[in-house]
Write a protein that binds this DNA or RNA. Structure first.
Length: 214
DNA sequence: GGATCGATCGGCT
DNA sequence: GCCGATCGATCCG
């Protein structure tokens, strides 16, 4: 399978968001491939987008959004979670696509281990035993913070080039998703003006059990 | 199945 | 100081 090139990401952000559906996100960890098919994304476009981190201009935190396309923008939120975006459009214009959910494909056992840290106390241990198999596949990567935990994506990847030959995080061309299988809607959990609240910039594969919500 | 609430800390109105 | 592009546990029906 061929890796998505820079040209893919330079295009209009809504086009990139739509076409990322069905592609495969790969993380190489300790020589092993952990991967999943992209089933849900959201677009954040320009400084006028009141839901975007770029709405208040360039800061040290969001600087990757202003950088060249095909790079990662990874941020830390709620004091405990990471979220992974792909930078799109021309360098200098802040736009990115948030990857919200994956369908797990390769390295599922390793991903489950990353999502089930060592029990800190006997109480947790008992709970983990109660689940037997651990986190079920359907909740392994069905959320922006969950997939970062499952693929061990953190701030070390902020600004990383997904198109570099030696990248440990990159995207491969995989499935073509037909238009009638794509659903759109307003973005999840955003605040802002009417434009931000109503923009249908969330794209997901209709009926996927791995989307963060139906 | 859906709603609610607490955790936890970096970056900024 | 305050709030956030969230998650998981826990409650209720």
């Amino acid at each position: 399978m061929s890796r998505l090139s820079r040209d893919f990401f330079v295009r209009d952000t809504l086009t990139v968001a739509r076409e990322l559906l069905g592609q495969r996100l790969i993380r190489v960890l300790n020589g092993q491939r952990l991967s999943g098919r992209v089933v849900e994304v959201e677009a954040y476009i320009g400084e006028d987008d009141q839901a975007s981190h770029a709405r208040c201009g360039r800061t040290e935190r969001n600087i990757a959004m202003f950088g060249p396309p095909g790079h990662a923008y990874v941020y830390f939120i709620y004091g405990m979670h990471h979220c992974f975006n792909v930078v799109t459009g021309r360098e200098g214009y802040p736009a990115a696509v948030l990857i919200r959910a994956l369908e797990p494909l390769e390295g599922i056992k390793a991903m489950r281990a990353l999502r089930s840290p060592e029990p800190a106390c006997p109480e947790h241990s008992r709970r983990a035993e109660g689940r037997r198999g651990g986190v079920p596949d359907v909740r392994l990567t069905s959320g922006p913070a969950r997939l970062c935990q499952a693929l061990e994506i953190d701030r070390r990847f902020d600004g990383a080039d997904l198109c570099a030959p030696d990248a440990l995080l990159f995207i491969e061309e995989d499935c073509v998703v037909p238009n009638d299988a794509v659903a759109t809607g307003p973005r999840v959990g955003v605040r802002g003006d009417v434009a931000a609240l109503s923009a249908p910039w969330r794209f997901y594969i209709r009926g996927s059990r791995h989307a963060s919500r139906q």
